[in-house]
Design a protein around this nucleic acid. Structure first.
Length: 374
RNA sequence: GGAGAGGUUCCCGAGCGGCCAAAGGGGGCAGACUGUAAAUCUGUUGGUUACACCUUCGAAGGUUCGAAUCCUUCUCUCUCCA
């Protein structure tokens, strides 16, 4: 197994760390936030602008891309990089989360997960092997194992069963990856599950520590639990997952969740929040979230955030952004998305600088105090 | 001048004797959004001393136990004919 991660600095007063993640389409500095581009596009953004902000690693989604445009199209174009003209790294989620969020349409068995398309209702089966195959065609630099993600407050029995299926699927995914040899060029990551039971989290983390995965994700968080639960289980799980490999918490977040993860030594995270909230008219700033549709911005000539380099902040006022949002113009969502992605990129730059200077914990405390207006 | 249609809560618009403070949109306001079935969804939108009362369906008067709904007059708008 090839080593793709190198820790370059460890914060003196917390578990936060800096690292370099070497992937098929370039090196990525960690901790890193990855924008989500489910359908081969970060909604509302040109790839060139995502790149210009500085992002070198974005997400795609196996489930969505498999349904549309389908494997034949992606195969013809030689993968998603060429098809979507994205020159940097791609991480694809396995569809495990869709298995969870589209739960009304799916059925899980030891064999795999059968589900109905949310688009046309057609029936499909995902097995751990098939999901590896799909991500091979997509050309993912990081591919995720098919897993079973579960919501909070399920029984120990149900959580155990879901975890065991996740583990057996991981073993099969590894075997299948190995059988593909050189033709599978991505890095297959395992996903720790275990719901909100510490004994299961421990078992799952140890299981994945022992497996031949180049990176490990902590899954099953940010699925509807309280923030206290999130913090508790993040810290507990992160403490057990090996520090030799890149560690990825899936599906976060907001600045508080991200900083919490970084403090626990997490290297990677992705979230739709930045882009979705932008499309719904809310932008992030160091002073908190600004809801653009509010009348308070109607005559405000200031930019969204002083000093921000994005298009909205350098060329338009809050008043204009308010107008864009109120009128439902496409440009509003586009500008807000670019702003939010710029915001999160700069936040991560500040995070990395703080770690480099061994002051992450105070940075986190001060940042959140300002963000939440205290 | 003649004939017809119509004036409903911020706007459009349903209602055509009681279940109407009045459907449904829109707009406004508030909230949610965390491995994207989301440029989406939810709540709220006359007043108050609030499981009740008050004011409200162009205006005034009338019929009725009861009227946004029926009658009379007035007023305004629109369409057609002169």
């Amino acid at each position: 197994m090839q080593k793709i991660f190198e820790e370059t600095h460890k914060d003196a007063n917390s578990n936060a760390r800096l690292g370099l993640l070497s992937l098929g389409h370039g090196v990525v500095e960690t901790p890193v936030f990855m924008p989500v581009g489910t359908n081969g596009t970060v909604k509302g953004m040109y790839h060139q602008d995502v790149e210009k902000i500085g992002y070198k690693l974005i997400l795609g989604n196996t489930y969505h891309l498999y349904l549309r445009p389908g494997m034949e199209v992606l195969d013809q174009f030689g993968g998603l990089h060429a098809f979507s003209n994205w020159k940097h790294n791609l991480l694809t989620d396995s569809g495990g989360f869709q298995v969870f969020s589209l739960s009304g349409l799916r059925k899980i068995s030891q064999k795999g997960v059968s589900f109905q398309s949310h688009i046309d209702g057609s029936k499909h089966l995902f097995t751990p092997e098939k999901v590896v195959d799909i991500q091979k065609v997509i050309g993912s630099d990081i591919a995720m194992c098919l897993d079973v993600c579960t919501p909070p407050e399920i029984s120990l029995k149900a959580a155990t069963e879901a975890m065991h299926i996740t583990h057996s699927w991981a073993e099969r995914a590894i075997l299948h990856r190995n059988s593909l040899g050189e033709s599978f060029r991505g890095n297959l990551f395992g996903i720790v599950q275990g719901n909100f039971y510490k004994e299961l989290r421990k078992e799952s983390a140890q299981f994945f520590n022992s497996m031949e995965f180049p990176g490990i994700a902590i899954g099953g968080l940010s699925v509807g639990e309280t923030k206290e639960q999130f913090i508790e289980f993040l810290a507990y799980t992160a403490d057990i997952v090996t520090k030799e490999k890149p560690r990825y918490v899936m599906g976060i977040g907001s600045p508080d969740y991200i900083l919490e993860a970084v403090e626990n030594g997490i290297d990677m995270f992705d979230c739709v929040l930045a882009t979705r909230m932008a499309r719904n008219g809310a932008v992030f700033t160091d002073d908190g979230v600004v809801v653009l549709k509010k009348a308070i911005h109607k005559f405000d000539a200031r930019p969204l955030e002083e000093g921000c380099t994005c298009t909205a902040c350098t060329q338009y006022s809050r008043s204009y952004m308010h107008h864009m949002v109120k009128t439902g113009e496409m440009l509003g969502g586009m500008l807000a998305t670019e702003h939010n992605l710029t915001y999160f990129y700069r936040l991560m730059e500040k995070v990395r600088a703080a770690i480099a200077e061994d002051r992450f914990s105070s940075f986190k405390r001060d940042y959140l105090a300002r963000f939440y207006g205290r």
